[in-house]
Simulated assay, not measured.
Amino acid sequence: MQTQRKTLSTVGAVSAAAALGLLTACGADKTDAGAAPADPGVPVTGTHWTVDSVTAGGKKTDAPGTKAHVAFDKKGRVSGNFGCNGFGGVAEVKGDTITVDKIAKTEMSCGDEIDKLETTLTEALKGKLKASVKGDKLTLTTAKGDSITLTSEPPAELDGTKWMLTATVEKEVATSLPKGSGKAEKAHLIFDEKAGTVHGNLGCNTVNAKAEVTDGKIELGTPRLTRKMCDGDVMKAEQHLVKLFGTTVTYEIDHRTLHLTGKDGLGLNANASNVKK
């Protein structure tokens, strides 16, 4: 399934990444123009906070397995994901109070369960919120008693992390790996920087290759593959991934998401597994 360009409801028809960039830039301008910068009184900035649950009207909704997360920066901005759709806005931190305003988000339906979670989170993450940090836990509480519980999550490292492949990329268009045969769910790569190698599975066949990592780039060697045959869509995606080998690709890690980009705009996206292997 191709990933469609998503738009922010208050920004217009541009890509989600660009729109969120515009929003955060505007947030920075407003902060510089007079809004108070984030106060270090509550140690919440500079951390990726994964949403554990949200409680509204006395009903608790757990959010494990979603993309839901929140990040506050020291320039008075907030960004993240409500479970499926990305968002950005302005956040003022004073003492133990965080005031969230001007939230804009992408608009994509992701199924009833996620849509309901997103609606609840959107309502809970606005206005004045009381913040409480205990260890790696953050609780944000609204004036009417609704709350969001979150856990700090460290960024993933390229080396040793089991990167679960989620999509192929061609000229900035991401296409989800097929799941029809179930094989694609195993697709992953593990880099060993000390040994200068990478191994894993490309959806059907296992792969081993040299992988020299230097300054944001990876020189991928010729792949050694098993010779299984799988469903047509799985093999098509695998052939796309194979084209990245024998070339030098750039890599970028956005917290726990890995982007590899090769020549002609070919690439892949992957998410860090919870367990390093």
Rank of each mutant, 00 (worst) to 15 (best):
L266E: 08
A19N: 00
I103F: 06
K74F: 05
C26S: 11
A187V: 06
G135N: 09
A18S: 14
T197V: 05
R77G: 00
E193K: 14
D32G: 02
V54D: 01
L225S: 01
G196N: 08
S9D: 14
V133M: 10
K162A: 10
V275P: 05
T250V: 04
T10V: 07
S181H: 05
A71C: 11
T55P: 04
A33M: 10
G232W: 01
A237Q: 03
A184C: 11
K144Q: 15
G80F: 09
T222G: 08
T222M: 14
K94C: 09
K243V: 05
H48T: 05
V198P: 00
K276S: 12
V207E: 01
K217G: 09
G89C: 10
D112E: 12
D101A: 15
V51K: 01
C26M: 11
A187E: 02
K186P: 01
K59S: 04
T168H: 07
E170Q: 11
K277P: 09
M1R: 09
E123F: 13
A209R: 10
T61H: 07
V90S: 12
N205R: 07
P43S: 07
T3M: 06
I218A: 03
R5K: 13
A209K: 10
H240S: 14
A36T: 12
F72H: 01
P154C: 09
H188N: 13
G12D: 13
L150A: 12
V213W: 07
T248F: 14
Q239T: 15
P40M: 07
K179C: 05
G21D: 10
G34Q: 06
I103N: 04
L20H: 02
T119G: 13
